[in-house]
């Protein structure tokens, strides 16, 4: 009955729906595995106990890895947020529509495309290694934090610049008209107005950084004991724990890896939801 033309249209529309269904299905498949396998292991022990070695069949937690993740991410935030916001202030307040700022903008995007493992190699070269132009600190939380900071930096620069640019120009003019200096205009008016959006951007960057693994296996290593130094091993983290325990044979360790995956996924899920709500409220 139908002409070839309509059959073709139905077929193509069907393929489009199939593509959308595939994307949805993959997400559901991943989330359900993480939630079911990780959820069964959630208890207070996770946060207070140390990871079990492979021969121990039950129990244990990843209190030390949780602290390690918090520490490395905190270091990364302390390094990348001031750096990124200052660069963003230049892009949005002083360098708008200059060649210099469009080059910086370009390089920011290129930096965000550098593979995380290469960033790990870089952090190894400037912090860990005992030769050359290095701080020679060895495997440490600092080294991991530096690597994560490099990965966070382009996200912070981009979101902060967007947030600052969305502050209306009227308000800047009002401040300058009252005799505010550039410094006062930025720090008393523009930046405070942009802080909510910048916070959202930093939260997204933090969630990404917490899940990063590749640069950490080159810079922090792993460990089964509590962390006692910022500049010495061991610095276990949740993401490296997932890698180590997922690839090992111990059933107990694999369960812990699922639980750690659940925490990392919950972190990105919650921050994504929060940022959506924040955007919706603003509009």
């Amino acid at each position: 009955m139908s002409s070839p033309r309509t059959l073709f249209a139905i077929g193509m529309t069907g393929l489009t729906f199939l593509a959308a269904a595939i994307a949805l299905l993959i997400l559901v498949a991943i989330l359900s595995y993480v939630v079911i396998n990780g959820g069964s292991r959630v208890s207070l022990d996770l946060f207070t106990q140390l990871p079990p070695v492979a021969v121990i069949k039950t129990g244990g937690g990843f209190g030390n890895a949780l602290i390690g993740t918090l520490m490395t991410v905190m270091i990364a935030v302390l390094l990348s947020v001031p750096f990124g916001i200052l660069a963003a202030i230049y892009l949005s307040e002083f360098g708008r529509e200059t060649l210099f700022s469009s080059i910086v903008d370009f390089l920011t995007n290129v930096l965000s495309g550098v593979p995380s493992i290469v960033v790990g190699v870089f952090a190894y070269g400037v912090i860990v290694t005992k030769t050359g132009f290095s701080l020679k600190l060895g495997f440490s939380a600092i080294a991991g934090g530096v690597a994560l900071a490099v990965l966070m930096l382009p996200i912070v620069v981009r979101t902060a610049a967007e947030a600052l640019e969305s502050v209306p120009n009227d308000v800047r003019q009002a401040a300058i008209g009252l005799g505010a200096t550039q410094f006062q205009t930025v720090f008393r008016i523009v930046l405070p107005a942009a802080i909510p959006s910048i916070t959202t951007g930093v939260m997204l960057a933090v969630a990404r950084a917490a899940g990063e693994t590749a640069p950490l296996i080159l810079t922090t290593l792993f460990g089964y004991s509590w962390i006692n130094s910022l500049i010495a091993p061991p610095t276990p983290t949740l993401s490296v724990l997932v890698f180590n325990f997922a690839t090992g044979p111990s059933r107990n360790q694999q369960q812990l890896a699922w639980a750690a995956s659940l925490i990392l996924v919950a972190l990105v899920l919650i921050t994504s939801l929060l940022s959506r709500l924040a955007i919706r409220r603003k509009v």
Partner: peptide, 23 residues
């Protein structure tokens, strides 16, 4: 679906790897 894509982009690589091993 936009949100689905956002989440797919945000799930840590190591979790994809673990899911890859198992599934």
């Amino acid at each position: 679906l936009v949100f689905v894509l956002e989440l797919l982009a945000a799930i840590p690589s190591v979790v994809y790897g673990f899911w890859g091993i198992v599934v």
